[in-house]
């Protein structure tokens, strides 16, 4: 099992994709922490209508995870490409010749993606915490008001890993890599937000569906400031959000694994 995981990690770190992604993670983490740093602190003070409000802890959380929705989009892409590029370049043949037990191959991919997600998470946090703490300080906020901030930081690593697993499942279920990338990004960034807004117009949807959408669950995990006033959907607690996102990852990666177990590789 360990050799198969090592092979997957080596596969990832021997193309140029990884350091391009690493730079993107660092820039996104730092850049959006700065932007959120000014935006959220301004809003929380003014108390004006339509701007986000929250505790000092939530303010810090929001700043450090400001770029997280870009970050998990990148790990979603990594997850898709981890399997999609194997189909596209037909390297899946040599992968399965080296690790012919497909369940083992899939577990190796899952573990490798969680590791990769955590590595990128650390890179992301290096950027966002360094830049965010500076801005919070400058704005007169405490950079680390409570222990909850550290929980949020740790959970961001998990968020990035889980979205990578969602990508793995999508990449298997939509074997055309380009189609998989377009569809996944469109769903995560366009379909889900619009769907969330529309569902919120309907009481049942707002209370029982919207909080369980993947991006809402992700936001709940990192517990940032709230936006949209009293009519907005109530987010899940952080651990429920984590369970919901983990369920998405398990279902999609599981479906993908099931399909991979049976497929003819020709």
């Amino acid at each position: 099992m360990i050799p198969a995981i090592k092979a997957e990690l080596r596969k990832f770190f021997t193309t140029r994709l990884w350091w391009g992604m690493a730079i993107a993670m660092l820039v996104i983490g730092a850049g959006l922490a700065v932007a959120f740093g000014y935006f959220v602190t301004a809003g929380a003070e003014s108390g004006a209508e339509g701007v986000p409000t929250g505790t000092a802890e939530q303010v810090a959380n929001s700043v450090y995870t400001g770029g997280l929705s870009f970050g998990y989009l990148l790990t979603l892409v990594i997850g898709i490409m981890q399997i999609g590029s194997e189909y596209r370049h037909k390297t899946i043949t040599s992968t399965l010749l080296a690790v012919p037990r497909r369940g083992q191959m899939m577990v190796a991919k899952v573990v490798a993606l969680l590791v990769i997600g955590a590595i990128y998470g650390l890179i992301f946090l290096v950027g966002s915490v360094a830049a965010g703490a500076l801005v919070l300080n400058a704005q007169g906020y405490s950079p680390f008001p409570s222990g909850g901030v550290f929980r949020t930081l740790a959970l961001s690593l998990l968020v990035l890993g889980l979205w990578a697993l969602i990508g793995l499942g999508v990449g298997i279920l939509i074997p055309n890599q380009v189609a998989a990338l377009l569809i996944a990004v469109a769903v995560a960034w366009i379909v889900e937000p619009i769907g969330g807004v529309l569902l919120s117009l309907w009481d049942f949807g707002r209370d029982h569906i919207v909080p369980y959408l993947p991006s809402a669950a992700t936001q709940a995990m990192v517990n940032g400031v709230q936006q949209g006033g009293p009519d907005a959907a109530q987010p899940l607690s952080w651990w429920a959000g984590a369970l919901v996102l983990a369920a998405y990852a398990a279902v999609l990666a599981g479906l993908g694994a099931w399909r991979t177990m049976r497929a003819d590789i020709s």
């Binding site: 050799p3 198969a4 090592k6 092979a7 080596r10 596969k11 021997t14 193309t15 140029r16 994709l17 590029s85 370049h89 390297t91 040599s94 992968t95 010749l97 080296a98 690790v99």
Partner: peptide
Amino acid sequence: HPGRTGRDHLRVLAAA
């Protein structure tokens, strides 16, 4: 993989 060197391709298999 067009972006991976031949040697690294073998190193991936070797790791497994």
